[in-house]
């Protein structure tokens, strides 16, 4: 069975900066694939290439079997793109916006009218369809922003960080929307730097960092990469550089990361290592003010792979 999205050695450079380096991953038809990575990882750049906004420097990708470089029109026809920022005409009504975007996807006449009605229903704005978008709340605009990508019933939909900067309620609404669309058979490529979202939505996750796909797999597979390692979050009463150096040298510690006095340590066996951590702290004259032992999660995986936290 062919992949809905196939990405092969995709590259993009901006001058000297290699924003995307040899990215390769696939999405099976009907699944949700998340691109997870910190700011500047190259997620948006990858998506811009897939949606035909940027020409790749090298490599290729295909949407529903259509190469984005050789048959861009066909690839775009199979694809709905929800931009990271609202991209709508504020001085047109919700309906006028949807009608216009529908036309850009080749819909006309009765079919267009019917589909606009359906989409208004899906995004729950039938009764506000005549109002100008400019007067809408942020959450309502986001819904129209998504709606405009659904008009032509695309096989694949790409969403770039659709939940950035919105309230928890709207976020919930959007996540539910994504799941509903996926249940109807749409393949979804979802980018985020929230690991909870990736964990909740995805069948597969590609983790990106500094332009590279550094891990790919189902959620549980990725967690297993950390092996038996356990993550311990600690807080110190000083910034304690000495303590950190000592901990790093402690046997059984594989990764260590500190941010704002919060320290995250990956260890092979918490029962055995934890006493050593206390011992080294008191030797250096520091005090541990809190300890939490975490089940491994995507954050742990990222830390394990890069030595850095997902969120900076």
């Amino acid at each position: 069975m062919p992949f809905a999205i196939e990405v092969k050695n995709l590259k993009k450079s901006f001058g000297d900066l290699q924003a995307v380096q040899d990215a390769s991953f696939n999405a099976e038809a009907g699944e949700v694939l998340s691109l997870l990575g910190p700011n500047g990882a190259g997620k948006s750049t990858t998506i811009s290439m897939l949606s035909g906004l940027l020409a790749p420097t090298g490599g290729d990708a295909s949407i529903m079997g259509h190469s984005i470089t050789k048959e861009p029109e066909a690839a775009k026809s199979s694809l709905g793109v929800v931009p990271q920022d609202i991209a709508l005409y504020p001085d047109l009504s919700a309906r006028e916006n949807l009608v216009f975007w529908g036309k850009m996807y080749g819909l006309r006449g009765a079919a267009l009218k019917q589909r606009v009605d359906e989409v208004l229903e899906i995004i729950g704005l039938t009764d506000r369809q005549k109002d100008h978008i400019g007067k809408f709340s942020g959450g309502m605009k986001r819904r129209v922003n998504i709606g405009a990508a659904l008009l032509h019933k695309p096989d694949v939909i790409i969403m770039d960080e659709p939940t950035v900067g919105i309230d928890p309620q709207s976020r919930r609404h959007i996540l539910d929307n994504v799941k509903a669309l996926n249940r109807q058979g749409m393949t979804v490529l979802y980018t985020t730097h929230y690991m909870e979202e990736a964990a909740e939505l995805s069948d597969h996750i590609a983790i990106m960092d500094r332009g590279k796909v550094i891990a790919y797999g189902a959620h549980d597979q990725l967690i297993k990469m950390v092996g038996e390692e356990t993550r311990i979050d600690l807080t110190l009463n000083t910034d304690g550089e000495k303590v950190l150096a000592a901990w790093k040298a402690t046997q059984g510690v594989s990764q260590i990361n500190s941010l704002d006095g919060k320290v995250t340590v990956l260890v092979d066996d918490s029962n055995r290592v934890l006493p050593h951590l206390f011992e080294e702290a008191s030797k250096a004259g520091a005090r541990i003010t809190s300890v939490e032992i975490q089940e491994p999660n995507l954050e742990t995986v990222f830390l394990h792979l890069t030595g850095r936290a997902l969120r900076d």
Partner: peptide, 14 residues
């Protein structure tokens, strides 16, 4: 600036 031009470019429109 509004991002609609980029969105237009993602549609199958020359």
């Amino acid at each position: 600036e509004e991002g609609t031009l980029a969105r237009l470019f993602t549609t199958p429109t020359d």
